[in-house]
Design a binder for these strands. Structure first.
Lengths: 218, 218
DNA sequence: GTCTATAAAGAGATAGAC
DNA sequence: GTCTATCTCTTTATAGAC
């Protein structure tokens, strides 16, 4: 869970008085609205209700904000691979588990994962994050290959390509999905129109249905 | 075809002497490497082998460069919907046609479409492009719905969600696919590792196989 | 933990010569 | 079609007070 219990969303009620994590949460939201590069420290300050220099009390630099956010996203994904469901069972079960959990992590840490998925590798921090992400992809790719050898997954698609296509679909969720619930679908900056309303569980079901069996009716 | 016959790629051989289109082609490549916002006119000038002010001879502003590039991408996609294959035949055939052609357009105009897919909607130009893209999505969504009514496509997934998932997969191609052929897979800026080697036709086949029938063997 | 003030660099864009 | 020189504004970041 990336949010503790019932933390409010934007500028805290009452006085600001941010801690590191609270400031990060708001910053990441703004990064995702405008893009990391297009977001200035001035914009962050405005959204936080602080002066620019106050931000530097919490983070050494703009890039440190990015680094902290990316770690949040990558940590979540990497953990999935260590969970029992990803390490035991048939290859197909393991693969299914990882895809489902990846959707859940993505939804749970949506802003952090969104930021991760939009990196261009402009700096050392960004490149290190992309490298961690690549290692995750490689692990999933090995799962797909194993499932093919098992005979449970079609072997006429290259496993590396299948992995990229499947995670292309999963990752694209950050472009439109907004959690439902008390405050779901609140703001939709830069969006492509209203999100269909669906919970995280149903979403994972849909993704897996499509990935495993496709659109065509039989 | 977005490239005329055998046009070289980066700084032309011999003297620069760019025309509007040649300059745009290089600029879009740089935009994609670093992200539009992170790309300065100075960086463009260096890559073009020109001074900053020379760029302003071809384009009024940085945003005009973006606008021209986005039009290239959107024009290609919108055209697909007008082609006979998208307008005649069974709903499933029409849907299949549109997905396949979308993959082809994406590959053919890869840099332009890549730029389009990374917009955040920061400016009026960007928002207008996102709106054109949304209209394309809506048209495809209508096709999915029609195919469901027809009974050829599973009806247990919301058509808007199915469309987003399918095009999430298609659009994710810009993150890793590099055309094969004489000069395929040349540079891979900001990449996630080497691309699997595959032609555009095979790629469209793989996407459609996955989208229509899924990974699971039967 | 926050502020004002400011430094230093880089941004997009223009003027005018060749 | 390209150049040098320059304007103006914004950027990230720091200094030092409260």
């Amino acid at each position: 869970m990336s949010n503790s219990a019932a933390v409010p969303a934007e500028p805290r009620r009452g006085r600001p008085g941010y801690d590191r994590r609270g400031a990060l949460e708001v910053a990441v939201r703004v990064f995702n609205e405008h893009g990391y590069d297009a977001t200035s420290m001035g914009m962050l300050a405005t959204r936080l209700g602080l002066s620019k220099s106050a931000i530097y009390h919490h983070f050494d630099s703009k890039e440190h904000l990015l680094e902290a956010a990316l770690d949040e996203a990558l940590g979540g994904l990497e953990q999935v691979l260590d969970e029992p469901g990803a390490r035991r069972g048939t290859q197909t079960a393991r693969l299914t588990y990882v895809v489902r959990r990846a959707v859940e992590v993505l939804v749970d840490r949506l802003p952090y994962v969104t930021l991760l998925l939009r990196l261009r590798g402009n700096t050392a921090v960004e490149r290190a994050a992309l490298e961690r992400r690549r290692r995750f992809d490689d692990a999933v790719s090995a799962l797909v290959r194993a499932a093919q050898v098992d005979g449970a997954v079609r072997a006429d698609i290259d496993p590396a390509i299948a992995t990229r296509l499947v995670f292309g679909m999963v990752n694209s969720l950050v472009e439109w999905y907004r959690p439902t619930g008390p405050e779901g679908a609140r703001q939709q900056a830069g969006g492509l129109g209203r999100s269909p309303i669906v919970g995280a569980g149903q979403l994972a079901d849909d993704v897996l249905a499509l990935v495993l069996d496709g659109l065509r009716r039989r």
